[in-house]
């Protein structure tokens, strides 16, 4: 970390290898497109490389990187042209392009597809808060730092996300 802050590309490469998979998973779930996720993660790491000398260690490196990635992902989503909502989105089983478990466990695959769709329908901040805390294991305080919100605001986003997700997954009770 210290070497990376002093401009050591090799040391920064080690940071990319360590934190990249989690960042990619998070961004992939935020933007739901492999190509866009790839671009966002590249932009996030370039931004991190250029500003790593200003990383002051007040948050963990992981939280700092999630913050940059989240900001870039939400920028990408804002730039997208608004698309009309598919009225069948919540009821029709979809296709998650990276789900390979459909053959071995079809019911779980359908559940996951509907979950992914329900998650995609959440507002960006709710989706980011839910993914960071529930899937990537950040604490509420860390998620708040990453999303530049207060911890109470994150708790509010999580509560709303939970209500929306459970409503949309009602059929799985």
């Amino acid at each position: 970390m210290r070497s990376a802050r002093l401009g050591d590309r090799e040391a920064f490469g080690a940071i990319v290898e360590r934190h990249g998979p989690a960042l990619y998973r998070f961004v992939r779930r935020m933007v739901r497109d492999h190509g866009e996720a790839q671009d966002v993660v590249q932009e996030a790491f370039v931004a991190a490389w250029r500003s790593i000398d200003r990383f002051d260690g007040r948050s963990t490196l992981s939280t700092w990187l999630f913050g940059i990635a989240s900001h870039k992902a939400r920028d990408t989503l804002r730039r997208r042209r608004p698309e009309p909502m598919d009225p069948d989105l919540m009821t029709r089983p979809g296709h998650d392009t990276i789900d390979r478990s459909a053959r071995s466990n079809p019911e779980e695959a359908v559940f996951f597809t509907e979950l992914a769709q329900a998650l995609a329908a959440l507002p960006d901040r709710q989706r980011a808060a839910w993914l960071l805390t529930q899937v990537e294991g950040l604490t509420t305080v860390e998620a708040a730092e990453a999303l530049r919100m207060t911890p109470d605001a994150v708790r509010g986003q999580l509560a709303r996300a939970r209500v929306s997700l459970t409503q949309r997954l009602e059929a799985w009770r």
């Binding site: 990319v16 990619y24 996720a37 790839q38 993660v41 590249q42 932009e43 790491f45 370039v46």
Partner: peptide
Amino acid sequence: ESAEWPAVASGVRDRV
């Protein structure tokens, strides 16, 4: 999902 990472990582390394 992590299986997609190596291809993404090479792009990140190039950009950096």
